[in-house]
Amino acid sequence: MSLKAEVTLHTASLRRYALVLTRDPTAADDLVQETLVKAIDKADTWQPGTNLRPWLFRIMHNTHISELRRAKTRSDAAPDLPEPVVQDHQHTQLELKQVLQALDQLPEAQRKPIILIALREMSYVEAARSLDVPLGTFMSRLGRGREALRKIVSGVTAGKLAVLNRKGNI
C-alpha cells in the first residue's frame, strides 16, 4: 500500500474517532484538519518503518486535549459536548444516546481507551502507544472504564424503569 493510500485510510479512522469524541460533524472535521496540519509540521518525528496509525492518533489526542483546555478556559467549566447526532425515534438510537451520555461522565483517561477499542482499528498495544501510556495502564483504564460505563447505563435504565413503575405504566 502506498503512503498516500495509507494516509487516506488512517484519516478515515481519525474522522470516525473524532466524530465520537466531538459528537458533531463540523467539530470532528475541524479536529481532523488540525491533526493533519500538526502531523505535517511533525512529519520528521515519524520513524519510517513504524506504524503510522498510532502516531497520527497520538497527535489527535494531544490536539483534542489542547482544544478541551481552550474550551474550558473559554467557558470556565467542563466543556459541554454537543448533543449526539442521533434521532430519538428508534430504540437503538436511544440506547446510543444513553451510552454516549454515560461516556461523557467518565474521566477522559477511561473514555478514550473505550472508544479506540470499540472502533476495532487498533490492537491494544497500538492504542496504548497512541495514548502514550504503558500497556498495563491502558488495559486497566479500558477495563475500569467499561465497567463504569456499564454501571452508569444500567443505573439509568433502572431509574427509567422505576419512574415508569411509579407512573403505573408497566
Partner: peptide, 16 residues
Amino acid sequence: HHDNLIREMAQTADDL
C-alpha cells in the same frame, strides 16, 4: 453491546 453502539455511531462519519 456498548462497543457495537459506539462503532456504529463512528461509522456514520463515512457518510459525511
